[in-house]
Amino acid sequence: MEETGMGLRLIPASFFMLIEDMKGRIFSSGIEHKKARWGWIFIIPSLAFFSLFSFYPIFNALYTSLFTKKLLSLARPRFIGIDNYVYLLQSPDFWNSIRATVVFTLGTFVPMVVFSLIFALFIMSRKRFQKFFQMAYYSPAVLSSVVVAAIWLLMLDPRGLANQWVNFILNTPGIDHKWLADSAMVQISTMMVYFWKYVGYFTIIFLVGLGSIPKSIHEAARTDGAGGWTDFWYITLPLLKPTTVLVSIMSMLQCLKTFSTQYLFTQGGAPMEPINVITLNLYYTTIRDRSIGLASAMSIILFCMMLFFTWLQFKTFRSEEVHY
């Protein structure tokens, strides 16, 4: 990376100040400092792990994105600055990938948040078979993506169960709904598969959140004459806000990173362009085109998108936490 003299002179000074501060906190006596010391001891291994397997790859990708680098080439990578970013932001193919990613994310995570809450409320309202419903909703989440894609590819085949069921329900025998062939339908199919696989996972998270709301608050609301809808809207939903934020952000980030469903569908014959999400484009840029510099630039752009949408969500949900 380019060095700036002023920046380098400041870095050692601030670094040493941090070390001195940590020394003061960790090595001084006193109960609070002892607790802090133990806190650091427990956190340091995971910080180290996270730094090695998350921070380092991010910085490495950022560095690599400034070079023209081909995977098989033995020549030294050539520094090109932000040329990779300029190329991507002018590339119709990359903008198609952004479109595919945004469409998939919005089309999947919004229903996933809404329905996982609905399913959680349904399970909570059951007096019997709660465990059965939890297991039934959660079980697709434990399947591997390859197995899920294989199952759905068979079902979405023109002669598969999906056409048979829909034609039976709608009484439209012989109609091919082109689940994997039509541009719009293949996008809906990937959203459907992803939703099916992960809605149970977020249902369980909502169940935990619902379970943490004290029953006494609901009882007090009922005593004051609140009906079911009022109780849900004014008691449950506000108290569930932290869980909702968590589910919303987690599901959105997961959708932005989607890869295996789209990859396996395209391997199974589905058209690539409608579902060529950023991660799939990144994969082909790396493995097929061997352009690791360009692929790194894509990954940084995706990372920035994820940061932006996470910030947006936090800003949208930001308000005082509700307590009763």
Partner: peptide
């Protein structure tokens, strides 16, 4: 050649399916 093959694929898919 692999990239060009994928581009032909997308052209054929776009006329056949899209």
């Amino acid at each position: 050649s692999a990239k060009i093959q994928d581009q032909i694929r997308e052209a054929v898919e776009s006329v056949m399916l899209a």
